[in-house]
């Protein structure tokens, strides 16, 4: 499983991005997007913003679950109260690696995956609040804090 995580501000402007791979099942945490598809990640994530706007009022929770799909890429969303979107693109490894266990975990819409992503989002959300409480941070400013990045990396390692 490879992940691409992006935070999108209120003007649909990117604030933060981070690419990583799974650390579960002996994964090494390195993203393995196919070279010719890697640059598409930003497009796919950006393209799902319209759907975010459609589903954001549907239920009261911040976690909107898996909202979009583009071929083998799934996009999950968490929407903060301040209209900042956390978008996580997850792409299961190509079916080339066919072990029975691999296919069962890789199911991107299974409740387990949803729960893991929820935990990841929750942790990032907590750290996001801390990061934007810094008096030197302005709304819709790119999140450059190394501490915040570190914590996102740690959350990714822990849950995904």
């Amino acid at each position: 499983m490879s992940y691409y995580f992006a935070i999108i501000g209120t003007q649909d402007n990117p604030l933060f991005e981070y690419e990583f791979g799974t650390s579960k099942q002996g994964g090494d945490g390195v993203a393995r997007f196919p070279e010719q598809a890697r640059h598409m990640n930003q497009f796919i994530v950006h393209g799902s913003l319209d759907i975010v706007e459609e589903v954001q009022w549907a239920n009261g929770s911040m976690y909107l679950k898996c909202i979009d799909r583009f071929y083998n890429n799934f996009v999950s969303c968490w929407m903060t109260g301040g209209n900042v979107k956390f978008l996580l693109l997850h792409a299961p490894s190509q079916p080339a690696a066919t072990t029975t266990t691999r296919t069962s975990i890789a199911n991107p819409t299974s409740p387990q995956t949803e729960e893991a992503i929820k935990q990841f989002f929750t942790e990032v959300y907590e750290n996001w609040i801390k990061a934007i409480m810094s008096p030197f941070y302005h709304v819709n400013m790119e999140a450059r804090s190394p501490i915040f990045r570190q914590r996102v990396v740690a959350a990714g390692k822990k849950y995904l």
């Binding site: 409480m133 030197f136 501490i147």
Partner: peptide, 8 residues
């Protein structure tokens, strides 16, 4: 100084 990160 809670939450504070100095400008980089």
């Amino acid at each position: 100084a809670d939450f504070v990160e100095l400008p980089d």
